[in-house]
Design a protein around this nucleic acid. Structure first.
Lengths: 209, 209
DNA sequence: GGGTTCACATACCATCAGTACGTACTTACG
DNA sequence: CGTAAGTACGTACTGATGGTATGTGAACCC
């Protein structure tokens, strides 16, 4: 059963997928505007022009729907960052490029609300980290690992992960403050400068010995 | 109307204060165990052995009660950290002492759940920051300011706040990962070592010039 | 083309935050 | 000392909301 080289999934399957996407998309918008707690399932299904039967057919519940939204947002952000650092060869340049990319990502209201603000509370911290592990945090870990390989530190993996966690937390907090500042442009520059100084310090340690 | 040199507030006022403290205390326990969303007001008033009438007499609502709990927890944490850094004279030593103190504070399940996990989502990020501003974050800012004064950086206040935000975020994330690690002891040591290296780097920058 | 399955829709339930109102005790005042 | 007023609750209720049980019609398979 093939059409134009693609596997024909049947009308029913396509309609189903469309409904599911619509639910996730509407949920994403409402979660962004009103937060998780402030968004009712009734509002979501009304926006997607379906009923709760459809929602509970596709998702186990409100939290599962949120997680689907969360995953999509993270995936988008992760890809944006990855695209910006994959071509940088020098580890230190890669770090600075990644930082700039993240500061752009965090300006997206959806990312802030869904991932940073509501994410930990709704998913629980363990599940939150579990999701981060394969998206934005993964990018940070790659960068940190590559930076730490420049010196003669030879840190064990656990230590590399500790550094990644620290930088990830720093960037999240910084990103949040940037997008909430009255002058996000200037605030972003300050963050870039501050982390730049920290990186300079680490760089100084490697060249010193 | 005085008793033992204290102003006598009357029995009713004392009973009232006792009821209020009981509500906050029970709420603190339940919020810690089951989170904000998972805790019902019925459970809180039952635990405090009062009714919802009492709760709504003392607090505007569930969120206001949470904020009272939040404030108390933050106050306790902030004081614990302050006590540990006030005697340290050398800025760098003060920073390391503050870090160690924070890593202890963050091991308290109540602090993690109420302040780090639920805080931002329940209070909203702006109100969350507003509260932090005069508690734990204030401590970090003091440390950062004193550390930055050692070099010839001469950074503007906005930049100092940026550094404080960065370190505060780093420590929050690190603290969370520490308390969730299978070996919190070792994880704490790693965090201390990692931030120590970052501080070393900054220190190297000052002595280099 | 007839039975089966899937993708929903409908109707309903239980929980819970919040409100309206009543009440007993206490304080202030004469 | 007595009474009016206010405070600190208790009781009873409502609306909103997440979740469930069940029905149904169209698409799929043989």
């Amino acid at each position: 059963m093939r059409v134009k080289g693609q596997i024909r999934r049947g009308r029913r399957a396509e309609y189903s997928a469309t409904t599911k996407r619509a639910l996730v998309e509407v949920a994403r918008e409402l979660f962004t505007e009103q937060g998780y707690a402030g968004t009712s399932l009734d509002a979501i299904v009304a926006g997607a022009d379906v009923t709760k039967g459809a929602l509970y057919h596709h998702f186990a519940g409100k939290q599962a729907l949120f997680e689907a939204v969360f995953e999509k947002v993270e995936q988008h952000a992760s890809r944006a960052i990855h695209d910006r650092i994959k071509n940088e060869k020098d580890p230190w340049e890669k770090a600075r490029a990644g930082l700039r990319a993240f500061l752009e990502v965090v300006r997206d209201p959806t990312y802030r609300r869904v991932v940073i603000q509501d994410g930990p509370a709704v998913l629980g911290y363990e599940r939150f980290r579990e999701q981060e592990e394969r998206s934005t945090y993964a990018n940070v870990l790659v960068i940190v690992t590559s930076v730490l390989s420049t010196g003669e530190w030879d840190l064990e993996p656990a230590m590399q992960r500790t550094f990644a966690t620290i930088f990830f937390g720093a960037m999240s907090a910084a990103g949040e403050s940037v997008s909430l500042a009255e002058d996000p442009e200037a605030a972003g520059d300050r963050v870039e400068a501050a982390i730049g100084i920290i990186l300079d310090g680490l760089q100084a340690l490697t060249s010193a010995r």
